[in-house]
């Protein structure tokens, strides 16, 4: 399509790779590593919304993603209709 600007997904991939290499990699405590992994997931979860933002830089979009994810976890865990009717252990909800 003749676009040379990377998409948000591509830019985020680059950023997360750098974070992993320069930061995540040196986390020794397994709990830190898990937390870092959750940060990566949180950033990736909101790629569609980040893509749809027409303004703002890369870090702003990532920060927004992380904040929303954090806020979501701080609230009472009430996934309601967003939860699969069969869980990850094969059990009915």
């Amino acid at each position: 399509m003749g676009r040379t600007v990377p998409t948000y997904r591509e830019a985020l991939d680059g950023l997360l790779t750098r974070w992993e290499r320069e930061f995540g990699h040196s986390l020794a405590d397994p709990r830190d590593r898990e937390a870092f992994h959750e940060v990566v997931l949180a950033a990736r979860r909101y790629i569609p919304q980040g893509t749809m933002m027409t303004s703002g830089d890369l870090v702003e979009r990532v920060l927004l993603s992380l904040l929303v994810d954090l806020q979501r976890k701080l609230r009472a865990p009430d996934p309601g209709p967003f939860e699969s009717e069969i869980d990850a252990f094969g059990n009915l909800r």
């Binding site: 909101y46 790629i47 569609p48 893509t51 967003f82 939860e83 699969s84 009717e85 069969i86 869980d87």
Partner: peptide, 9 residues
């Protein structure tokens, strides 16, 4: 596009 929730609905 949205990221759909994984699982059965």
């Amino acid at each position: 596009t949205l990221t759909p929730p994984v699982g059965l609905f």
